[in-house]
Design a protein around this nucleic acid. Structure first.
Length: 560
RNA sequence: UGGGGCGUGGCCAAGUGGUAAGGCAUCGGGUUUUGAUCCCGUGUACCGCAGGUUCGAAUCCUGCCGCCCCAGCCA
């Protein structure tokens, strides 16, 4: 559409098809099998299919590829619909199922039989496998390959009528058992499955295979460009063969692209399942999961996910995108949209010895330093406060710009304070700081422009809202857990940490799904599952970029 | 030693014969009551390798190497 729209090879093809008049409008489809939850990899496919249509004024179908009853559930259908909608896409009335076409599919199967290019094979699955040959050796024709059209038709109709048990017969395309492409060695088109389908019930006991159902569904929906991932490249000759034989009115074109892989994440359904079953995570929507449900619960904005996919590009090259790209997209969006708040994750009590007991000042605080239009709110300030344990250090290195004994620091939106005394418990641990404040340095007044090196955040102890805050890290310790021998062995034991934090009181009025920045800490949102007013639970969406952490690391590396 | 794909700086990615965009990351610096944001600057990219065609090649040709996918009555 505009100059910023990336022109990947698929959009180029589509652009050319529109220019040449081959198509007047574009129709795509996103065709998940409802047998699990959608994940970050699907986000790309969704954005591509819906995006390409949107950009050209075309249409997109959300089609459930439900050709394998027993593995598919309505629960997944609803979850998928929700995920796609949440991502910001609309299929309008174009919500379909492969099962909507079972009658048509059956008729096309009979057509193939009548054309003499499909036959009923009565070999067992094992026998068929044995005759298929190998990657380097041609297969062998089935002894049933030359049945007459009449015989095939009768058998196929009896298959449909339920006269045979599962596995007794199978309908196969008659192509070429010696083809170097194994998908062309007489692929199965229909198999017998005496099992109720979630939508068609007991109407059918034979079900079409993916290649057959998908090709015809595409044609029936007048799909112009059928976009799928690279592993289906070898299926394209079969896709085209079916179209050549059946000659439907509309002929779709399949185009393949590489899937998006995110570093430190897995997308294998089996492995994701294992994480849930073994209790490694709390469920499919655990905020550490790469599922759309997990990403949403974590607090990642849909717009940031769309941007992430856009930056990844559309190519045919295997890719493993760094987490930093995703995190940058999240931060970019949230930096703009998230109001600022203060919260202390690891509270350390500070008593201001010279601040009047019982006094409370309401300190105005900007909701967004770069967007004054977002206004201000008032934060209570009093004699006893909490600051971050990390913001105090006894033997601080010279570059430590926070609080140290005898040192000064500014309290964000408050006063400059000086650390006068350190209180310890019997074990010698610091449990409290006695500080003095400089009344002249209140933010925005008097000599408040007096400079000190550091500014730290705080919360008034008497007004603080206690809350559980969950801190997340990557689920795996290696960039490519898929390549690990045992992905369970490379789990990050510290992927979840929970702390009892103290929040500024205004956070009690946060709306569902709203993200805020806890200044100096990161972006946070309420947990959509466990949060309640009585027992607040927050998730850290992502940290802020932290150049201090790098300096610290380097110092440790240099000086041991 | 079958077939199908893919190889441009750490990770992505433009480039479609005329002399290598951009983003992320990195490393410097500036601004800053978030060590955030923002703003500057920062890479000699043997364009997988080797030949060839051409005045000229990442782009064309040949050979080689590496990686990915395929032997479900899964999708």
């Amino acid at each position: 559409m505009n100059d910023a729209t990336p022109r990947d090879f698929i959009r180029q093809i589509i652009h050319n098809d529109l220019e040449s008049g081959k198509h007047t409008s574009i129709v795509t489809r996103f065709p998940p099998e409802p047998n699990g939850y959608l994940h970050i990899g699907h986000v790309m496919s969704i954005c591509l299919n819906f995006g390409v249509a949107e950009e050209t004024g075309g249409r997109t179908f959300l089609r459930f590829d439900d050709t394998n009853p027993g593995k598919e559930r309505e629960e997944y259908v609803r979850a998928i619909e929700r995920d796609v909608r949440w991502l910001g896409f609309d299929w309008s009335d174009r919500l379909t199922h492969a099962s909507d076409y079972f009658d048509a599919l059956y008729a096309y199967a009979e057509q193939l039989i009548e054309q003499g290019v499909a036959y009923v094979d009565s070999l067992s699955a094992d026998e068929i496998r044995a005759l298929r040959g190998t990657l380097t050796e041609a297969g062998t024709d089935s002894p049933y390959r030359d049945r007459t059209v009449a015989e095939n038709l009768e058998l196929f109709r009896r298959m449909r009528a339920g006269e045979f048990a599962d596995g007794e017969h199978v309908l196969r395309a008659k192509i070429d058992m010696a083809s170097p492409n194994i998908n062309l060695r007489d692929p199965a088109l229909y198999r017998i499955r005496h099992i109720a389908h979630q939508r068609t019930g007991d109407k059918w006991c034979i079900y079409p295979m993916y290649d057959f159902a998908h090709t015809i569904s595409d044609a029936l929906e007048h799909i112009t460009h059928s976009l799928c991932t690279l592993e289906f490249e070898d299926h394209r000759p079969l896709y085209d063969w079916l179209l050549d034989q059946l000659k439907p009115e509309h002929r779709p074109r399949q185009i393949e692209f590489s899937r998006l892989n995110l570093a430190y994440a897995i997308t294998s359904k089996r492995k994701l399942n294992a994480l849930v079953d073994d209790g490694v995570v709390s469920g499919w929507d655990d905020p550490r999961m790469p599922t759309i449900a997990g990403l949403r619960r974590r607090g990642y904005p849909a717009s940031a996910l769309r941007e992430f996919v856009k930056r990844g590009g559309v190519t045919k090259k295997d890719k493993l995108i760094e987490m930093a790209v995703l995190e940058n997209c999240i931060r970019e969006e949230l930096d703009f949209s998230a109001p600022r708040r203060m919260a202390v994750l690891q509270p350390l009590k500070v008593v201001l010895s010279n601040y009047p007991e019982g006094q409370v000042e309401m300190m105005p605080a900007s909701n967004h330093p770069n967007r004054p239009e977002l206004g201000t709110r008032e934060v209570p300030f009093s004699r006893e406060l909490y600051i971050e344990q990390e913001d105090f250090m006894e033997d601080a290195p010279k570059k430590f710009f926070r609080l140290k004994p005898g040192g000064e620091v500014r309290l964000r939106n408050g006063y400059i304070i000086r650390c006068e005394d350190v209180i310890r418990n019997e074990a010698g641990a610091v449990i409290e700081l006695r500080c003095s404040y400089d009344p002249d340095t209140r933010s925005g007044t008097g000599s408040s422009d007096r400079k000190v090196k550091g500014t730290i955040h705080w919360v008034s102890a008497a007004h603080a809202l206690p809350a559980e805050v969950r801190l997340y890290d990557r689920l795996f310790t290696v960039a490519d857990p898929n390549a690990a021998d045992d992905f369970m062995a490379v789990l990050n034991p510290d992927s979840l940490a929970s702390v009892q934090a103290m929040l500024e009181p205004s956070l009690g009025k946060l709306g569902d799904g709203e993200a805020v920045q806890f200044e100096r800490l990161g972006y946070f949102c309420m947990d959509s599952v466990d949060h309640s007013a009585k027992r607040p639970v927050f998730n850290r969406i992502v940290t802020l970029r932290d150049s201090w952490a790098k300096i610290e690391q380097q110092a440790i590396a240099q000086h041991g």
